[in-house]
Simulated scan of single mutants.
Amino acid sequence: MKNSNSVKFPSLMHAMNGLPAPRMSRLPASEVQVLRQVMIKACDLPSGSALERFVRDALADAEVVESYFFPRISRQSVNAAPQQTQMLLPINQALRAARQAKAFVDLLPHERSVAFVAALLYSCGVFHCTHPLFRPSGRNGAPSRSYAKKLMGLLLEDALHNLQRADAGLGQTLAAVLGMGDAQDCQPDQVARIGTAVYLANVAVMQVGLGV
């Protein structure tokens, strides 16, 4: 049975059907815009809300969007069995993590949308630095966790600053959850709840992306 929650992407379908791998070239701006709207719509946020504007700002960089839609090959060994090869699409990994975070049992109702957005963007640094066109020159193999986290901060910095200007409380909370700001001015229990939900939901995503 097909998973109706999975995003379909032509390059992935070609790879799964044994056809040539997708070309190593940037996506057209028109296609990036379609994919950007897929991600924004998935967040299901009130139009014009501070959190929705944050998502739009975070996805304004075409490289961020493209990173979520480039298929990756994952090779895993289970016990003593030979390695199993699986084709993964980062957006599906991220959406799965976002839904898991949103459903975290300890969250309060008004915290669930924040957890969804934070979990969706939590691994953007991993996806970006493992994209073959965006990987920094001289860096081979899987990136380190610290490098991926630093890159996430750079990719989301402007969007987060805009959010903090529009809604200081929400911006500070989201920054603390993502490890990009001090939690001193936030509600510590709230940051702990959302942060735990986001972290646990992304453990598997980080393991696959970083090879750890």
Results as ranks from 00 to 15, higher is better:
23 R>L: 08
109 P>W: 13
84 Q>S: 12
5 N>W: 06
149 K>R: 09
93 Q>F: 00
21 A>Q: 11
176 A>E: 14
136 P>D: 08
117 V>L: 11
97 A>M: 00
135 R>I: 03
20 P>V: 11
22 P>G: 03
183 A>T: 05
3 N>T: 04
181 G>V: 07
46 P>A: 05
57 D>G: 04
134 F>H: 09
18 G>D: 13
30 S>M: 05
77 S>G: 07
155 L>H: 03
132 P>T: 12
55 V>T: 10
49 S>L: 09
94 A>D: 00
142 A>T: 13
207 Q>V: 05
155 L>D: 02
140 N>D: 11
140 N>G: 07
34 V>Q: 13
112 R>W: 04
198 V>H: 02
54 F>M: 05
210 L>A: 03
109 P>N: 10
139 R>P: 00
122 Y>N: 10
28 P>D: 03
172 Q>I: 03
43 C>T: 12
132 P>M: 15
38 V>P: 01
98 A>S: 01
137 S>D: 14
175 A>P: 01
35 L>V: 06
197 A>S: 08
164 Q>A: 04
166 A>S: 12
99 R>S: 00
164 Q>E: 15
53 R>S: 04
29 A>W: 06
112 R>D: 02
161 H>L: 07
78 V>K: 13
49 S>A: 10
118 A>Q: 06
139 R>S: 04
140 N>I: 08
60 A>M: 14
135 R>F: 01
115 A>F: 04
34 V>F: 06
81 A>L: 15
184 Q>R: 10
15 A>F: 13
62 A>Q: 14
142 A>M: 07
183 A>K: 06
175 A>S: 14
175 A>M: 10
149 K>C: 05
